[in-house]
Nucleic acid binder design. Sequence first.
DNA 1: TTGTACGCGTTATCAG
DNA 2: CTGATAACGCGTACAA
Lengths: 373, 373
Amino acid sequence: MTPPKRPIEACAASQLAELAAQSRRVTSYDVALVAGVSQSAVSRCFKPGASVSKSTFARVMKAAALLDYVPNAAARSLITRRTNMVAVLITNRANLYYPELLSELSQQLTPHGKRVLLFPLSGEAEAARVLGDLWQFQVDGVIAAAHLPATAVAEFRRHRVPLVVFNRLLDDPAVHTVSCDHRAAGRMLAARLAAAGHRHFGIITGSKDSVVAVARQQGVAEQLAELGLPAPLVVTGEFDYHSGASGLKTLIARHGGIPDAIICASDVLAIGCLDCARHELGIDVPGQLSVAGLDAVEPSNWLSYNLTTLRQPMAGMAAAAAQQVCQLIERPDLGATRQLFEAQFIEGATARLLPAGAAMGQPFSLAPALAIM
Amino acid sequence: MTPPKRPIEACAASQLAELAAQSRRVTSYDVALVAGVSQSAVSRCFKPGASVSKSTFARVMKAAALLDYVPNAAARSLITRRTNMVAVLITNRANLYYPELLSELSQQLTPHGKRVLLFPLSGEAEAARVLGDLWQFQVDGVIAAAHLPATAVAEFRRHRVPLVVFNRLLDDPAVHTVSCDHRAAGRMLAARLAAAGHRHFGIITGSKDSVVAVARQQGVAEQLAELGLPAPLVVTGEFDYHSGASGLKTLIARHGGIPDAIICASDVLAIGCLDCARHELGIDVPGQLSVAGLDAVEPSNWLSYNLTTLRQPMAGMAAAAAQQVCQLIERPDLGATRQLFEAQFIEGATARLLPAGAAMGQPFSLAPALAIM
DNA sequence: TTGTACGCGTTATCAG
DNA sequence: CTGATAACGCGTACAA
């Protein structure tokens, strides 16, 4: 195959014509023909760090540009066994309440050359079908920010797909995990509120299949028990604004009055509770009632709310998950790690609190509940 | 290749051992060997609507299950020229303010057997690199909910990738589009406010590269001009809560007092403006000032705000975009369509308004501005 | 209905 | 540094 005497442009034009006639797509072979080199030379030009001479590289790139050639990822991954895709399993809830999660994950994966393939999970029943799809795509790794059926982890292992579980702690310790320590967060919040003298706690939570909410609730209950305080009243609804309001009313009815503090399993619940207390029931928050959320979504720090809550370091967690899955893709046999992030306490103004650091042995007017400690 | 006399399970076990030894992955050929059929028979079993006998189908499926076989999408798409992936180009802004967009798109594409491959765009500079990546993946189609560079549309055409542009109207009429009619929405809002007697308008908008915001602002300005009202004062900031507050202060300074109505280019801006007016400046809304948003994100209908705003029918728009791109994938030569959706007016309680329908010729105490009409 | 043979577009190996 | 050749795993005419 001697280099054609005709100028490369003319050569490209005739090649394009032939391509159109046969309705083929542009391949590395076409580029090779136009550039007057072998097909493997073209391939090498598109592989970073391959050994190609300056001059052939230039010819090939020019030909490629003329023909609008791009390497076909499907063909490439057939042989490299890399698709450069990472699957993200995500529930609609996570999608709605942590919009930054997906952006962060994508942003963090891009520099590694990976793209996000989205697998939304609405219900548990869907999981099986979705996983079936998942294997077909031969993704390099998976980040699961959704509830997985019990058998799923074993399946990932069988199919040898690296898995990083996000924001939930499975029983299986051999699973790579990046999560906020929701139980510790619940404990911290309960401790801060108890220290400020609250005795009677209510909890408003969303549907029970949220592992995150359950862990938080556990933390709260544990801490209260250890402090010798009465067990919290628990009301379960959905995770929406309306459930915060109805939860508050139910709690008041069940407790026979306004409890001291209400902890909500999400900020949206807390805001619903807060609005209902202030605007509907005329309750003074935090004078008569302390309300705390758990999430620190954006509206929680708006002036109208200024919610007492806990912030998950979402960006950092997403970055860690991305990092972790990429590492796992390079070295699949790495031992399982559990990265636990600490929630950050946001004081806000919807709960009565002692100044930070005042809880321990300060000469402060201690509330009755503290005397028990 | 006669069917082995050994039970299929034993056959599968030895095959698996061999696979592990060579660290190959399970292929249709392995399944064929275990099931005692040809490779193409296996292929047919995984193609819906192919002609396979009941008995071979059963044998193949059993063998496949024993080996954990799934067809390799990369290899398949090499032949079929379908990757079953749809790229979604999305800005971080859209990601944050319309979290339901991605869920809806995924949900709507799933029944068509398509999955979403995510391409987030932070800045315009990134677009070129992202597009380069995009072609490699050979996606079946693209939904663009981000600003595209002027040359991009031509590139899509050259690469023969079906494109649906979401929520922005390009000049090129030959581009398939699904969008809310933002200009009409702006006009409607301005008209309603003008009808209720507002004369002096302010606009708080986000950065200028949001086509959506620009279109809305145009609509407002046009309508006011047609009604013979003074041109609105415009303040540009970011799209966040804080910019709403600072925008309000700037507007008051520039107007030399409180304007009659402020229209914000997004609900978050409006809420920032509202909170600042009420909590910081002590302005009575809507008594002294009407505030309107443009988006109807979830917080806008919370009791503390109850914002006057316009809702985009996001779910419907997402469904239409998904539908459109799928249709285009089947028939790429379809003529360009522009689907325009109408925004829904949400009265709320942050703007003084006439009862709906009262604007035209009703015996109503007309405000001064209306006399001009 | 089933099997044979080939091609999809690339990367990897190896000899020159 | 370059080119021939062999995979990669599957779908699909075509013949049986």
